[in-house]
């Protein structure tokens, strides 16, 4: 029940788990840029290699990574089909001609197949790479801490990043409590004869009302009590607050970021040197 609060976090001890969350957030951005910069077969090969090494380093079981991909299978198939059939056929090597429409030829081309394959690889690497870097190896709390510290310069232009971070961490803290509340209310309503499972969509949605209203009421009550408890512990907004666990930037974090920067560099170099040698993929 409580595991939902921690999303897909996979408990393990690996270099990637120990990385500073700020490093992982920046690395993820670099990684996304790299996947979109890939323009030829060799750079895609490098991307696959990098992702595989990343997943091995993280010690997250392959089974879990594949599971996270399952959710986007539909998008992958769609992207593959669009690229397969809608790649411009002009000057391309036609494999299977479908026909002509509006003065344009349609069919499957060698280039189209290549593009579709690369698009699939791009999405696969994107999903698995980002989930390894963040969701599997970073707890939501670390993520909140990292994000708020990365964005803390915004405080200078009066954006209350610390308050948002506090709201985030309270929200995370209350997820298991709310799940527990929902279960309790559902049981109470079931005991009074509410039927949640039968009927059509509308009937099922209507059956949720007797859960949602008590849930709202109890959440407001909890919120008020929490606010009182926080005030009693001298909470007075973000000003003058210190933190016990400061994030520490380690040498390994710099090294990790360098690796990702190197990936981008390599992709760009491959794009430039191999221009015209291997078929370019947009």
């Amino acid at each position: 029940m409580n595991s939902i609060a921690f999303g897909q976090y996979y408990q393990a001890s690996s270099g990637i788990h120990r990385m500073d969350p700020r490093t992982k957030i920046i690395a993820m951005l670099l990684f996304i840029v790299a996947t979109f910069l890939c323009k030829n077969i060799l750079s895609f090969a490098l991307l696959i290699l990098f992702t595989v090494v990343l997943s091995l380093l993280s010690r997250v079981p392959m089974r879990l990574i594949l599971k996270s991909i399952r959710g986007v299978v539909f998008i992958i198939i769609l992207a593959a089909l669009v690229n397969l059939f809608l790649t411009s056929t002009e000057g391309a090597t036609m494999i299977w001609r479908i026909g002509e429409w509006n003065g344009r030829e349609y069919g499957i081309t060698q280039e189209g197949i290549l593009r579709a394959v690369c698009m699939v690889i791009r999405i696969l690497c994107l999903i698995s790479g980002t989930s390894i870097l963040l969701t599997f190896t970073t707890t939501p709390i670390e993520m909140t801490d990292g994000l708020s510290q990365l964005l803390s310069p915004l405080m200078k232009i009066k954006i209350p990043v610390d308050l948002f971070a506090m709201m985030m961490s309270i929200a995370l803290r209350f997820i298991p409590t709310l799940i527990e509340d929902t279960r309790r209310i559902m049981n109470a309503q079931k005991a009074r004869g509410t039927d949640f499972s039968s009927g059509g969509l509308i009937k099922k949605a209507k059956a949720l009302i007797p859960i949602l209203i008590p849930l709202f009421v109890s959440s407001f009550k909890r919120g008020e009590e929490l606010a009182t408890a926080m005030e009693c512990r001298c909470y007075h907004g973000g000003a003058g607050r210190t933190r016990m666990n400061k994030l520490h930037w380690k040498v390994s974090d710099t090294m990790g970021l360098l690796l990702f920067a190197l990936l981008i560099g390599a992709v760009i170099v491959l794009n430039l040197t191999l221009r015209g040698v291997t078929p370019a993929i947009a």
Binding site: I170, L226, A229, R233, C234, R243
Partner: peptide, 18 residues
């Protein structure tokens, strides 16, 4: 209703942090 953070020690640290 009086715990602010998820992890035990961080919750204990909340007051002193304030």
């Amino acid at each position: 209703n009086q715990m602010v953070t998820t992890i035990v020690e961080e919750d204990v640290a909340f007051g002193p942090e304030n």
